[in-house]
Computed example of a mutant assay.
Amino acid sequence: MRTLKTLFLTAALIPGIATAKDAPKPVVLTVPGFADFLAIDGDTVWATNRFSVEQWSLKGKTLEAPMGRPCGGMSVDYGSLWVADCPEGAVKRIDTRTGKLLAVISTGIANNMEGELNTVTGAGSAWIASEASGKIARIDAATNKVVATIPTASGSWYLTFGLGALWAVSGKQQLLSRIDPATNTVTGTVALGKMPGFLVAGEGAVWVQEQGDGTVAKVDPATMTVTMRIKVGDNLKYGDIDVGDGKVWLRTTDDQEFVVIDAQTGAILSRVGKPVHSGGLRWTPGGAWTSAHDFHLLTWWPKGSETVKP
């Protein structure tokens, strides 16, 4: 039997290094509709909306591409935005410079009713969970063709790519799977807590929201073991997660807008903003973007604004 060293860390705050007086201020943009999932594109951000995807800068909307109903997390790579269209059961490839539709790739969408999933990129491909029974479609970015269908645990529709692998979480099976892009096969699994959801690979680990437990699980990508669990709140439903600058950036629904966690120690460095229901989050070296669809907002948090002590 595998032995796990599980460390539960309290949500005690480490004092911020900036004061409210000298910290940079967030920039709040009003976005009509239902701005939700985000993808970084240089100094701009793409957001899914009700019937379109939109590119926004700090000055306002710069591009818009119509869709049936964009759903799930997106990825910017190979000069394109890759986004699922749930009613069409397809991945759409959109030119990030012009907003022009470049390709429609019929894949099927594993979670097309709820739209909680990710289209991710890596190893020359785009990837999406295509069947709820446990199938992931691999799209060749050079040809826009599905070149492989990878069997995995049923209910696997949360994906991320990083640390040399594709990673898939099954909320149904409470399982994280590691998939080798060289062989298109599952090479390892690890059990997770209640209602695992969105995840990200980076800062030396795979980080998974355990939404039902209110924890973030840190998984060693080589040994496929949970090495730490960080207790954040009662639950982590309907949020988002990213990594960067030695930290984990966690969009929450309750208690605050997002949480910043030290990736090495698991200490919660700051709790930022007021609760604004669910939404997306993406980190950049210059700061972080968040969305709050119920309040029709996009917010840019410049680097340093998250360090203000509440």
Rank of each mutant, 00 (worst) to 15 (best):
R251E: 08
L166F: 13
T143R: 03
Q173V: 11
S291H: 03
P221A: 14
G99Q: 03
K92A: 01
T185G: 07
L298P: 02
E54V: 04
T307C: 05
D242M: 00
P24W: 15
G279C: 05
L192S: 00
L281Q: 01
D140K: 07
W46G: 06
T253N: 12
D294P: 07
S52E: 07
L102G: 05
T223M: 06
A18H: 03
G115R: 06
F258K: 06
M228G: 04
T160Q: 08
D41M: 01
V219Y: 07
S130K: 10
A126S: 04
N184I: 03
D255K: 10
N111S: 10
G115H: 13
E131R: 14
G115D: 11
L7Y: 13
T252F: 05
P221R: 12
L297E: 13
I105F: 01
K303P: 02
A132N: 12
E210T: 10
G197L: 09
L175A: 06
G233Y: 09
K303F: 11
G193D: 01
Q211V: 09
G89M: 01
G73T: 09
A11R: 15
T284V: 07
A84I: 00
L63M: 02
V226M: 00
I150R: 02
M74I: 10
P285T: 06
V276N: 01
G162M: 04
S170C: 14
T6M: 13
G246N: 07
V190I: 08
L63G: 03
A20E: 12
K92H: 09
K274M: 08
G122Y: 03
G244S: 05
R138Y: 09
V208D: 01
A84R: 02
